[in-house]
Amino acid sequence: MTVQIARLGLPAGPDAERFAERLSERVARRIDHLEESPGMIDFAFSTALLALRAHCVADPRAAAAETWEAAVNAMQLGSALFAVTGVSEGVVECRINRKMRTVPAAGPLPTADAGNWLTAFWLAVICREQERMTQLCEIPLERLRSPEGQYDEYIYHWVDTLQTYWLRRPGLVEKLTATFEASDPTVARVAPRDLLQGVLYPPINLFYHFVRRDEAGFSPALVEALKLHQVYWTLNEERATDIDGSIALGPLAIACLAYDGEIPIEVESDYLPKHLLQHSWLGEFPT
Rank of each mutant, 00 (worst) to 15 (best):
Y151V: 01
P202I: 07
S146F: 05
E142M: 14
A221C: 10
F180T: 00
L206G: 08
K175S: 08
F121N: 12
G198T: 10
P140W: 13
R169L: 10
L196K: 15
V231C: 01
P140K: 14
S146W: 05
G115N: 13
A178N: 10
Q230T: 01
K227Q: 09
G217Y: 10
F121W: 14
T179G: 08
E215M: 11
T186D: 12
M133F: 02
A124Q: 09
A120V: 02
F207S: 09
E131M: 06
A188G: 05
P192L: 09
E138I: 02
C127Q: 01
R128N: 02
A216E: 15
T134Q: 15
C137F: 06
R132M: 06
Y232V: 00
L144Q: 13
L222W: 05
Y154D: 08
Y201V: 11
P170N: 05
G217H: 12
P147K: 12
L136A: 02
E138C: 14
R189M: 08
G171I: 01
W166A: 06
H209W: 05
I204R: 11
A216R: 15
R132T: 01
Q150F: 04
Q197N: 15
F218Y: 15
E181A: 11
A191I: 05
A225P: 01
A221T: 08
Y154W: 14
G149N: 07
I139E: 13
E181N: 08
D194K: 14
N236G: 03
R169T: 00
T186F: 04
K227I: 00
T177P: 01
A191V: 07
L172I: 04
G198H: 14
R193H: 09
F207H: 09
A182V: 00
F121I: 03
T177N: 13
V173N: 11
L123I: 01
L141P: 12
V231E: 08
R143A: 15
G217R: 14
L123V: 01
E224M: 05
P203M: 08
V125S: 04
R128W: 00
A191Y: 09
Q130C: 02
W117V: 05
Q163Y: 03
A178I: 00
F180P: 02
E153D: 12
A120W: 02
A182H: 05
R193L: 11
P170G: 06
L228K: 13
Q135P: 01
W233D: 03
L206S: 06
F218S: 12
T186L: 10
Q163F: 04
L118P: 07
Y156I: 02
R193A: 15
D160E: 09
Q130H: 09
D184M: 04
L167I: 00
E174C: 02
P203S: 09
G217F: 10
L235V: 00
L222M: 07
P185Y: 03
C127M: 03
C127T: 06
E153N: 11
Y151A: 07
P203W: 07
Q130S: 08
R145C: 10
A216K: 15
R145A: 14
A178F: 01
Y165P: 04
V187T: 07
D160P: 00
A191F: 09
R169S: 06
D184L: 05
D152G: 11
T161E: 11
